[in-house]
Design a protein around this nucleic acid. Structure first.
Lengths: 149, 149
DNA sequence: GTGGTTTACGGGCATATGCCCATAATAGTC
DNA sequence: GACTATTATGGGCATATGCCCGTAAACCAC
Protein backbone atom coordinates (compact mmCIF):
# COMPACT_ATOMS: atom_id res chain seq x y z
CA UNK A 1 0.00 0.00 0.00
CA UNK A 2 1.72 3.16 -1.14
CA UNK A 3 1.26 5.97 1.34
CA UNK A 4 2.13 9.59 0.78
CA UNK A 5 3.66 11.85 3.39
CA UNK A 6 1.68 14.93 2.43
CA UNK A 7 -1.60 15.27 4.32
CA UNK A 8 -3.00 17.45 1.58
CA UNK A 9 -2.19 15.04 -1.23
CA UNK A 10 -3.57 12.13 0.79
CA UNK A 11 -6.83 14.02 1.27
CA UNK A 12 -7.10 15.05 -2.35
CA UNK A 13 -6.39 11.55 -3.64
CA UNK A 14 -9.01 10.01 -1.39
CA UNK A 15 -11.47 12.73 -2.32
CA UNK A 16 -10.87 12.11 -6.02
CA UNK A 17 -11.42 8.38 -5.68
CA UNK A 18 -14.54 8.64 -3.56
CA UNK A 19 -15.97 11.37 -5.75
CA UNK A 20 -15.57 9.08 -8.75
CA UNK A 21 -17.56 6.40 -6.96
CA UNK A 22 -20.38 8.71 -5.95
CA UNK A 23 -20.43 10.33 -9.38
CA UNK A 24 -20.72 6.95 -11.08
CA UNK A 25 -23.61 5.90 -8.92
CA UNK A 26 -25.37 9.27 -9.22
CA UNK A 27 -24.83 9.42 -12.98
CA UNK A 28 -28.31 8.13 -13.94
CA UNK A 29 -29.80 11.19 -12.22
CA UNK A 30 -27.75 13.63 -14.28
CA UNK A 31 -26.34 15.09 -11.07
CA UNK A 32 -22.72 15.23 -10.01
CA UNK A 33 -21.83 14.74 -6.38
CA UNK A 34 -21.10 18.42 -5.88
CA UNK A 35 -24.44 19.40 -7.35
CA UNK A 36 -26.25 16.87 -5.20
CA UNK A 37 -24.50 18.29 -2.14
CA UNK A 38 -25.52 21.83 -3.03
CA UNK A 39 -29.15 20.87 -3.57
CA UNK A 40 -29.29 18.76 -0.42
CA UNK A 41 -27.76 21.50 1.72
CA UNK A 42 -30.07 24.04 0.14
CA UNK A 43 -33.12 21.94 0.93
CA UNK A 44 -32.03 21.76 4.53
CA UNK A 45 -31.42 25.47 5.01
CA UNK A 46 -33.58 27.27 2.46
CA UNK A 47 -34.26 30.09 2.11
CA UNK A 48 -30.64 31.11 2.56
CA UNK A 49 -28.18 33.59 1.14
CA UNK A 50 -25.38 32.55 -1.16
CA UNK A 51 -22.70 33.35 1.41
CA UNK A 52 -24.36 31.46 4.22
CA UNK A 53 -24.87 28.38 2.06
CA UNK A 54 -21.24 28.52 1.00
CA UNK A 55 -20.23 28.42 4.64
CA UNK A 56 -22.36 25.36 5.29
CA UNK A 57 -20.71 23.71 2.31
CA UNK A 58 -17.20 24.80 3.37
CA UNK A 59 -16.85 26.31 -0.06
CA UNK A 60 -15.68 29.64 -1.41
CA UNK A 61 -18.55 32.04 -2.13
CA UNK A 62 -17.44 32.61 -5.68
CA UNK A 63 -17.12 28.87 -6.23
CA UNK A 64 -20.68 28.33 -5.07
CA UNK A 65 -21.76 31.17 -7.31
CA UNK A 66 -20.20 29.45 -10.29
CA UNK A 67 -21.55 26.04 -9.32
CA UNK A 68 -25.06 27.44 -9.09
CA UNK A 69 -25.02 28.48 -12.72
CA UNK A 70 -25.81 25.07 -14.22
CA UNK A 71 -28.31 24.40 -11.43
CA UNK A 72 -30.21 27.60 -12.26
CA UNK A 73 -30.06 26.86 -15.95
CA UNK A 74 -31.58 23.45 -15.30
CA UNK A 75 -34.33 25.08 -13.24
CA UNK A 76 -33.56 23.39 -9.95
CA UNK A 77 -32.59 26.48 -8.00
CA UNK A 78 -34.13 29.93 -7.81
CA UNK A 79 -32.33 33.14 -6.85
CA UNK A 80 -34.60 35.78 -5.43
CA UNK A 81 -33.95 39.14 -3.83
CA UNK A 82 -33.64 39.26 -0.05
CA UNK A 83 -34.56 41.88 2.48
CA UNK A 84 -30.98 43.05 2.24
CA UNK A 85 -30.71 44.11 -1.37
CA UNK A 86 -27.10 42.98 -1.49
CA UNK A 87 -28.14 39.41 -0.84
CA UNK A 88 -29.54 36.90 -3.28
CA UNK A 89 -31.78 34.45 -1.47
CA UNK A 90 -31.61 30.89 -2.73
CA UNK A 91 -34.52 28.50 -2.79
CA UNK A 92 -35.11 25.07 -4.26
CA UNK A 93 -37.66 24.97 -7.07
CA UNK A 94 -40.32 22.27 -7.16
CA UNK A 95 -38.36 20.55 -9.90
CA UNK A 96 -35.23 20.70 -7.76
CA UNK A 97 -37.02 19.25 -4.75
CA UNK A 98 -38.51 16.49 -6.88
CA UNK A 99 -35.16 15.65 -8.40
CA UNK A 100 -33.59 15.46 -4.97
CA UNK A 101 -36.29 13.09 -3.77
CA UNK A 102 -35.92 10.92 -6.84
CA UNK A 103 -32.15 10.80 -6.46
CA UNK A 104 -32.04 9.98 -2.77
CA UNK A 105 -31.88 6.23 -3.37
CA UNK A 106 -28.88 6.66 -5.65
CA UNK A 107 -27.00 8.60 -3.01
CA UNK A 108 -27.99 5.93 -0.50
CA UNK A 109 -26.59 3.27 -2.80
CA UNK A 110 -23.30 5.14 -3.15
CA UNK A 111 -23.09 5.69 0.59
CA UNK A 112 -23.93 2.05 1.38
CA UNK A 113 -21.49 0.79 -1.23
CA UNK A 114 -18.68 2.77 0.30
CA UNK A 115 -19.51 1.84 3.86
CA UNK A 116 -19.92 -1.82 3.05
CA UNK A 117 -16.36 -1.76 1.84
CA UNK A 118 -14.76 0.59 4.37
CA UNK A 119 -16.92 -0.22 7.38
CA UNK A 120 -19.81 1.88 8.64
CA UNK A 121 -18.24 2.54 12.03
CA UNK A 122 -14.88 3.38 10.49
CA UNK A 123 -16.61 5.71 8.07
CA UNK A 124 -18.42 7.49 10.89
CA UNK A 125 -15.15 7.95 12.78
CA UNK A 126 -13.48 9.22 9.65
CA UNK A 127 -16.28 11.71 9.01
CA UNK A 128 -15.80 13.05 12.53
CA UNK A 129 -12.11 13.63 11.88
CA UNK A 130 -12.87 15.22 8.54
CA UNK A 131 -15.49 17.51 10.09
CA UNK A 132 -12.93 18.73 12.61
CA UNK A 133 -10.56 19.52 9.76
CA UNK A 134 -13.22 21.08 7.56
CA UNK A 135 -14.33 23.46 10.30
CA UNK A 136 -11.00 24.47 11.72
CA UNK A 137 -10.46 28.17 12.12
CA UNK A 138 -7.20 30.08 12.01
CA UNK A 139 -8.08 31.48 15.42
CA UNK A 140 -8.00 27.97 16.84
CA UNK A 141 -4.35 27.60 16.05
CA UNK A 142 -4.44 26.54 12.45
CA UNK A 143 -1.90 28.78 10.84
CA UNK A 144 -2.80 29.63 7.27
CA UNK A 145 -0.27 32.40 6.83
CA UNK A 146 2.75 31.56 8.96
CA UNK A 147 5.67 33.86 9.69
CA UNK A 148 6.96 33.57 6.16
CA UNK A 149 6.07 36.97 4.81
CA UNK B 1 -19.43 21.01 15.27
CA UNK B 2 -21.63 20.45 12.25
CA UNK B 3 -21.04 17.04 10.73
CA UNK B 4 -22.33 15.84 7.40
CA UNK B 5 -23.64 12.35 6.73
CA UNK B 6 -22.17 12.03 3.28
CA UNK B 7 -18.69 10.53 3.24
CA UNK B 8 -17.96 12.14 -0.08
CA UNK B 9 -18.96 15.63 1.01
CA UNK B 10 -16.99 15.26 4.23
CA UNK B 11 -13.90 14.31 2.25
CA UNK B 12 -14.30 17.12 -0.26
CA UNK B 13 -14.86 19.73 2.43
CA UNK B 14 -11.78 18.67 4.34
CA UNK B 15 -9.77 18.55 1.14
CA UNK B 16 -10.88 22.05 0.22
CA UNK B 17 -9.92 23.46 3.60
CA UNK B 18 -6.55 21.76 3.77
CA UNK B 19 -5.77 22.65 0.17
CA UNK B 20 -6.41 26.29 1.01
CA UNK B 21 -3.91 26.07 3.85
CA UNK B 22 -1.18 24.43 1.77
CA UNK B 23 -1.86 26.79 -1.14
CA UNK B 24 -1.51 29.82 1.10
CA UNK B 25 1.79 28.63 2.51
CA UNK B 26 3.14 27.60 -0.90
CA UNK B 27 2.01 30.83 -2.55
CA UNK B 28 5.40 32.60 -2.36
CA UNK B 29 6.83 29.86 -4.59
CA UNK B 30 4.24 30.42 -7.30
CA UNK B 31 3.22 26.77 -7.04
CA UNK B 32 -0.18 25.41 -6.14
CA UNK B 33 -0.44 22.30 -4.02
CA UNK B 34 -1.45 20.14 -6.97
CA UNK B 35 1.51 21.37 -9.00
CA UNK B 36 3.88 20.73 -6.12
CA UNK B 37 2.51 17.21 -5.82
CA UNK B 38 3.01 16.54 -9.50
CA UNK B 39 6.58 17.81 -9.46
CA UNK B 40 7.44 15.93 -6.25
CA UNK B 41 5.99 12.68 -7.55
CA UNK B 42 7.76 13.18 -10.85
CA UNK B 43 11.10 13.71 -9.13
CA UNK B 44 10.61 10.46 -7.28
CA UNK B 45 9.71 8.33 -10.27
CA UNK B 46 11.26 10.03 -13.30
CA UNK B 47 11.59 9.16 -16.07
CA UNK B 48 7.99 7.95 -16.22
CA UNK B 49 5.11 7.87 -18.64
CA UNK B 50 2.09 10.11 -18.24
CA UNK B 51 -0.20 7.20 -17.45
CA UNK B 52 2.06 5.70 -14.82
CA UNK B 53 2.53 9.03 -13.09
CA UNK B 54 -1.22 9.55 -13.09
CA UNK B 55 -1.63 6.24 -11.29
CA UNK B 56 0.87 7.24 -8.63
CA UNK B 57 -1.05 10.47 -8.16
CA UNK B 58 -4.45 8.70 -8.11
CA UNK B 59 -5.49 11.06 -10.87
CA UNK B 60 -7.19 10.67 -14.22
CA UNK B 61 -4.70 10.52 -17.11
CA UNK B 62 -6.41 13.32 -18.97
CA UNK B 63 -6.44 15.44 -15.82
CA UNK B 64 -2.72 15.01 -15.40
CA UNK B 65 -2.27 15.85 -19.06
CA UNK B 66 -4.12 19.11 -18.54
CA UNK B 67 -2.30 19.89 -15.30
CA UNK B 68 1.05 19.41 -17.00
CA UNK B 69 0.34 22.20 -19.50
CA UNK B 70 1.21 25.11 -17.20
CA UNK B 71 4.17 23.16 -15.82
CA UNK B 72 5.60 22.67 -19.30
CA UNK B 73 4.94 26.27 -20.21
CA UNK B 74 6.88 27.35 -17.13
CA UNK B 75 9.74 25.07 -18.14
CA UNK B 76 9.67 22.80 -15.10
CA UNK B 77 8.70 19.60 -16.87
CA UNK B 78 9.92 18.07 -20.11
CA UNK B 79 7.97 15.62 -22.28
CA UNK B 80 10.17 13.39 -24.40
CA UNK B 81 9.45 10.41 -26.60
CA UNK B 82 9.72 6.96 -25.05
CA UNK B 83 10.77 3.61 -26.47
CA UNK B 84 7.09 2.98 -27.06
CA UNK B 85 6.19 5.73 -29.48
CA UNK B 86 2.74 6.02 -27.98
CA UNK B 87 4.19 7.08 -24.67
CA UNK B 88 5.42 10.48 -23.68
CA UNK B 89 8.15 10.18 -21.08
CA UNK B 90 8.16 12.86 -18.42
CA UNK B 91 11.25 14.25 -16.77
CA UNK B 92 11.92 17.15 -14.44
CA UNK B 93 13.99 19.94 -15.94
CA UNK B 94 16.86 21.48 -13.99
CA UNK B 95 14.67 24.48 -13.32
CA UNK B 96 11.93 22.20 -12.06
CA UNK B 97 14.30 20.34 -9.75
CA UNK B 98 15.71 23.60 -8.43
CA UNK B 99 12.25 25.01 -7.79
CA UNK B 100 11.26 21.87 -5.93
CA UNK B 101 14.35 22.11 -3.73
CA UNK B 102 13.72 25.78 -3.03
CA UNK B 103 10.08 25.13 -2.18
CA UNK B 104 10.64 22.18 0.14
CA UNK B 105 10.77 24.37 3.25
CA UNK B 106 7.40 25.91 2.38
CA UNK B 107 5.78 22.51 2.07
CA UNK B 108 7.41 21.54 5.37
CA UNK B 109 5.94 24.65 6.97
CA UNK B 110 2.47 23.81 5.67
CA UNK B 111 2.81 20.21 6.81
CA UNK B 112 4.11 21.19 10.25
CA UNK B 113 1.42 23.84 10.65
CA UNK B 114 -1.30 21.32 9.98
CA UNK B 115 0.17 18.63 12.19
CA UNK B 116 0.82 21.03 15.06
CA UNK B 117 -2.90 21.71 15.05
CA UNK B 118 -4.29 18.26 14.28
CA UNK B 119 -1.60 16.16 15.95
CA UNK B 120 1.22 14.40 14.15
CA UNK B 121 0.15 10.93 15.25
CA UNK B 122 -3.48 11.59 14.36
CA UNK B 123 -2.39 12.90 10.99
CA UNK B 124 -0.34 9.77 10.31
CA UNK B 125 -3.30 7.56 11.23
CA UNK B 126 -5.57 9.63 9.03
CA UNK B 127 -3.16 9.37 6.10
CA UNK B 128 -3.21 5.59 6.48
CA UNK B 129 -7.00 5.55 6.25
CA UNK B 130 -6.94 7.90 3.29
CA UNK B 131 -4.35 5.77 1.51
CA UNK B 132 -6.59 2.73 1.89
CA UNK B 133 -9.43 4.69 0.34
CA UNK B 134 -7.33 6.21 -2.41
CA UNK B 135 -6.05 2.82 -3.53
CA UNK B 136 -9.20 0.80 -3.31
CA UNK B 137 -10.06 -1.24 -6.34
CA UNK B 138 -13.48 -2.28 -7.57
CA UNK B 139 -12.26 -5.87 -7.52
CA UNK B 140 -11.73 -5.59 -3.77
CA UNK B 141 -15.42 -5.07 -3.22
CA UNK B 142 -15.77 -1.38 -3.83
CA UNK B 143 -18.74 -1.17 -6.12
CA UNK B 144 -18.51 1.73 -8.52
CA UNK B 145 -21.34 0.68 -10.77
CA UNK B 146 -23.86 -1.21 -8.66
CA UNK B 147 -26.86 -3.10 -9.94
CA UNK B 148 -28.69 0.06 -10.81
CA UNK B 149 -28.44 0.03 -14.56
C1' DG C 1 -26.37 63.18 6.49
C1' DT C 2 -21.68 62.73 4.80
C1' DG C 3 -17.69 59.79 4.53
C1' DG C 4 -15.18 55.69 5.52
C1' DT C 5 -15.60 50.81 6.51
C1' DT C 6 -17.59 46.51 6.08
C1' DT C 7 -20.43 43.15 3.74
C1' DA C 8 -22.54 40.61 -0.41
C1' DC C 9 -22.26 39.58 -5.01
C1' DG C 10 -20.80 39.13 -9.92
C1' DG C 11 -17.20 38.87 -13.63
C1' DG C 12 -12.84 37.57 -15.20
C1' DC C 13 -8.88 34.71 -14.91
C1' DA C 14 -6.33 30.54 -14.18
C1' DT C 15 -6.08 26.04 -12.76
C1' DA C 16 -8.25 21.30 -11.45
C1' DT C 17 -11.10 17.43 -12.51
C1' DG C 18 -12.76 13.88 -15.39
C1' DC C 19 -15.68 12.20 -19.24
C1' DC C 20 -15.99 11.11 -24.22
C1' DC C 21 -14.13 10.46 -28.64
C1' DA C 22 -10.46 10.40 -32.03
C1' DT C 23 -5.81 9.06 -33.30
C1' DA C 24 -1.86 6.46 -33.33
C1' DA C 25 0.93 2.69 -32.06
C1' DT C 26 1.57 -1.85 -30.04
C1' DA C 27 0.19 -6.60 -29.27
C1' DG C 28 -2.20 -10.73 -30.41
C1' DT C 29 -4.37 -14.02 -33.74
C1' DC C 30 -4.77 -16.69 -37.63
C1' DG D 1 1.16 -10.17 -43.26
C1' DA D 2 -3.65 -8.55 -42.41
C1' DC D 3 -7.34 -7.94 -38.91
C1' DT D 4 -8.65 -7.13 -34.44
C1' DA D 5 -8.10 -5.82 -29.77
C1' DT D 6 -5.64 -3.25 -26.47
C1' DT D 7 -2.99 0.61 -24.86
C1' DA D 8 -1.25 5.64 -24.62
C1' DT D 9 -2.17 9.96 -25.50
C1' DG D 10 -4.49 14.48 -27.06
C1' DG D 11 -8.57 17.62 -27.91
C1' DG D 12 -12.97 19.17 -26.70
C1' DC D 13 -16.52 19.81 -23.39
C1' DA D 14 -18.47 20.75 -18.95
C1' DT D 15 -18.05 21.41 -14.32
C1' DA D 16 -15.20 22.55 -9.90
C1' DT D 17 -12.19 25.48 -7.33
C1' DG D 18 -10.70 29.79 -5.65
C1' DC D 19 -8.26 34.22 -6.28
C1' DC D 20 -8.66 39.23 -7.37
C1' DC D 21 -11.15 43.28 -8.37
C1' DG D 22 -15.13 46.06 -9.09
C1' DT D 23 -19.82 47.45 -7.73
C1' DA D 24 -23.46 48.18 -4.78
C1' DA D 25 -25.65 48.21 -0.48
C1' DA D 26 -25.63 48.46 4.46
C1' DC D 27 -23.44 49.97 8.67
C1' DC D 28 -21.03 53.21 11.64
C1' DA D 29 -19.38 56.80 13.38
C1' DC D 30 -19.48 61.99 14.17
Amino acid sequence: MPTVLCNCLALRQAARRVTQHYDHVLAPSGLKTTQFSVLAMLRRYQPISLGALAEHLVMDRATLGHNLRPLQKAGWVSLGAGADRRQRVLTLTDAGAALLTDTAHLWRAAQDGFEAWFGAADAAALRTDLAVIAHMKPSEGFISMPALE
